[in-house]
Design a protein around this nucleic acid. Structure first.
Lengths: 124, 124
DNA sequence: TAACTGTACTAATCGTAATAGCACAGTTGA
DNA sequence: TCAACTGTGCTATTACGATTAGTACAGTTA
């Protein structure tokens, strides 16, 4: 489990962990019923307190992205929340693009970026 | 000066103020040497402490977006920082779009959003 | 001089992130 | 049964940053 945490970021560590697990689910790397590392294992791997990991996992469970079973571990939920994840990411992108427009960005500037990011793929 | 502040947001008030002034400059509403409301006036209008306003203005001055003169007031800087502003907004959009892709968003989803936001304009 | 401007402090308050530590309960395999 | 894991649920403390409050000082202008 390769996480990249920025301990000096304004976004809390537990939010960064949530984001990255969510991304792994959204991108299909993690699939239904895949097991996550244990709280204690992640805590030691990332040098982050177990309570912080727990906070992230609890949030993700509330969101329906993972489920936890005492004694066994934490796992990816099954269901169609993949669409939901992509949807919320799209909302964020929409906000950022709107803000860019309001700051004077041209449509072509955005399109160039999109084409650059999706280089190779056509309409997928 | 119409500001919309979310006092419950995770992003600090002074950051929200910075963003909105920056947007007004980037969009061309505020132009070089235009005078901003005084610290005390903004403070009372927005019901925000003067120190918070000052924090935002100081940051903007460091960024070269505004300049302040003791006894006179704060003004929009002249120069070509408009491009810089749009550029930094584009960077943010790029990040958000990349994140959306990593969460499974399709290129077409992004393009729809872009077209929707830039509805009407063609290649501007 | 009066009434504005920005500047520069110090102090206090508040909320939240993060850590530390402990105890308890469920699961599993030796 | 027991040991070694799992998650859960607390309490307490620390640390940091945002925000407010208050005071004082200096420049500008009519």
């Amino acid at each position: 489990m390769n996480f990249f945490l920025d301990f000096h970021s304004r976004t809390p560590i537990y939010e960064q962990i949530k984001e990255q697990i969510t991304a792994l689910v959204g991108s299909g790397v993690l699939k239904a019923d895949d097991q996550l590392p244990s709280l204690r294992q992640l805590s030691s791997e990332l040098s982050v307190n177990i309570n912080t990991i727990k906070r992230a996992f609890s949030d993700l469970e509330v969101q329906g992205i993972i489920y936890s079973v005492a004694g066994k571990g934490s796992f990816i939920s099954n269901g169609t929340q993949r669409d939901v994840i992509a949807q919320s990411a799209l909302e964020d992108a929409k906000l950022a693009i709107s803000k860019a427009k309001s700051m004077g960005a041209k449509k072509n500037d955005i399109l160039k970026i999109v084409n650059n990011i999706y280089e190779g793929d056509e309409t997928t």
